[in-house]
């Protein structure tokens, strides 16, 4: 498993320092500090409500942190939000498409939001990448849930951004397409794109991610490679038999004294 093939880079592509975010009085992120390098696929893990989407929406300059500092490709997120936005492609957890428009028109419409001009040929190529070329002229409302997911991903890739922020992008996509999309994402990372990927899918984590971060109740409890995770777990006195069991242990509820057995 090639989880450690990160390239040597000088400066972190994404730098998060002591970031907190509140909804009302309730914190959804607390003092998160993290570095993500160029060409890396960084997996964001954590149970429901842990703050994964909150973190990704901050990185995509949609919401601003209450405190702390975020730098993306050398740009300050607060002061240079507009420039940051042109460099990122955001795949939201919920599908963001105009249901009454066709696949083609959705891609064209999303392309209007970027600075870069994108030709129709490029859009069709993108459509082929997510295997939707046969649906080019169909209305989004007539697509299946998985197809919409694919288009949701494609929309984030339109302006060829350097950084991809993907919030559970492959939920509900069939195994075959999911593998293809995972392969595609890995190729993108190999070609120098930086990817932050939130998922609940064990095999995706293991296949895609060079490094992972584990969030629980808004606190980043671990960040590092799978190998580093294994070391940490070992120090706590556990010896997982497989990578799957390792991930399972990482996400285990800390309030339990002894982890539940893994099957």
């Amino acid at each position: 498993m090639d989880t450690c093939d990160s390239e040597v880079v000088d400066k972190a592509m994404i730098q998060i320092e002591n970031v907190s975010k509140f909804y009302g009085k309730k914190p959804s992120l607390q003092g998160v500090t993290l570095k993500i390098e160029k060409g890396e696929v960084f997996g964001v893990l954590g149970p429901n409500g842990a703050g994964k989407s909150t973190l990704l929406s901050i990185l995509s300059a949609i919401s601003m942190p209450a405190s702390g500092r975020v730098e993306i490709n050398g740009l300050d997120l607060k002061k240079q939000a507009k420039l940051v936005r042109e460099q990122i492609g955001y795949v939201p957890q919920d599908i963001a498409l105009w249901e009454h428009l066709t696949v083609k028109d959705n891609l064209i419409f999303w392309s209007k939001f970027s600075k870069r001009r994108v030709s129709k040929e490029e859009l069709f190529e993108l459509c082929r990448t997510v295997r939707l070329q046969g649906k080019w002229n169909e209305k989004v409302s007539s697509l299946s849930g998985g197809m919409k997911r694919k288009l949701n991903i494609a929309a984030a890739l339109i302006h060829n951004p350097d950084i991809l922020l993907m919030d559970e992008p492959t939920v509900g996509i069939d195994i075959q397409s999911k593998l293809e999309i995972n392969q595609y994402i890995r190729d993108l990372a190999r070609n120098g794109k930086t990817i932050v990927y939130s998922t609940h899918d064990m095999s995706e984590i293991l296949y895609l991610c060079n490094r992972i971060g584990v969030l629980k109740s808004g606190v980043l409890q671990f960040s590092g490679t799978i190998a580093e995770a294994r070391e940490m777990v070992k120090r706590k006195g556990f010896l997982p038999n497989s990578d799957e069991e390792l991930i399972y242990l990482l996400l285990q509820d800390d309030s339990l004294e002894k982890p539940l057995p893994y099957f």
Binding site: R85, P92, I95, A96, W98, S114, L165
Partner: peptide, 20 residues
């Protein structure tokens, strides 16, 4: 119709929500 997910997503783009 669009203020939920779409407006949220549009805020992550270069031209942004106000322009839209």
């Amino acid at each position: 119709r669009e203020k939920g997910v779409l407006f949220f997503r549009i805020q992550s783009t270069y031209h942004g929500l106000v322009s839209y």
